[in-house]
């Protein structure tokens, strides 16, 4: 099945998604890699400069360019999600994440958290950075750029029909990666 989802969404829509489905998301997404995961987990939700519960979490360290004082996305494919496995169950719970976008899959702790908190993990084609960049309509903001540097900072992107994303781990405890290993 193919779905087009506007973010934020409700649990009903997340529950519809099953592994193998194709998804396109419209709304806001924020990037977070190792350093941002670590940093956000240390902070109080109320002190964050943006509301992660209203956005999709994108495992991505984009290549950006500043032209005439405005940030532009040059290339922005997903980064390897398994690095974030050590943070992700706590991250989903703390920030109410509904949709994760990454590549390569995640482990058992995330799988359980997705089921418990009704969320999905979706895969975007790794390395398809130019293609992904063209689906980003606007760079809304960036946080912690000075401390963390371009790849690790939290970038907020406004996207339209971002995808195709493959639903690879759903909210029913199923994982494509686990099925393949069988």
């Amino acid at each position: 099945m193919e779905y087009h989802l506007k973010l934020p969404t409700d649990a009903e829509n997340i529950k519809k998604l099953k592994i193998g489905d194709i998804l396109y998301v419209t709304g806001n997404i924020f990037t977070a890699r190792d350093e941002t995961h670590h940093m956000m987990l240390e902070k109080k939700v109320s002190t964050l400069p943006f509301d992660p519960s209203k956005m999709a979490l994108y495992h991505c360290g984009p290549l950006m360019k500043k032209t005439n004082g405005k940030w532009q996305v040059v290339s922005a494919g997903p980064t390897t999600s398994s690095r974030m496995e050590i943070f992700e169950d706590r991250f989903i719970e703390k920030f109410g994440i509904q949709v994760i976008i990454g590549k390569g899959g995640m482990g058992e702790k995330t799988e359980i958290a997705l089921k418990e908190h009704c969320a999905v993990y979706t895969a975007y084609t790794g390395g398809a950075g130019a293609l992904a960049a063209d689906k980003i309509e606007e760079v809304s903001a960036v946080f912690w750029l000075e401390e963390l540097g371009m790849p690790e900072a939290a970038w907020i992107f406004k996207v339209k029909d971002f995808g195709p994303l493959v639903v690879a781990m759903d909210s029913h405890g199923k994982s494509i990666y686990k099925e393949i290993k069988k």
């Binding site: 290339s75 494919g77 398809a128 130019a130 293609l131």
Partner: peptide, 25 residues
């Protein structure tokens, strides 16, 4: 097939727009 399709489209786009094909340069 959808994954290889995205890869091939991405390669084309990167070459045409002279942009790095992957953000991890």
């Amino acid at each position: 097939k959808t994954q290889i399709d995205a890869i091939l489209k991405n390669i084309d786009l990167a070459k045409k727009t002279k942009r790095p094909m992957c953000q991890d340069t």
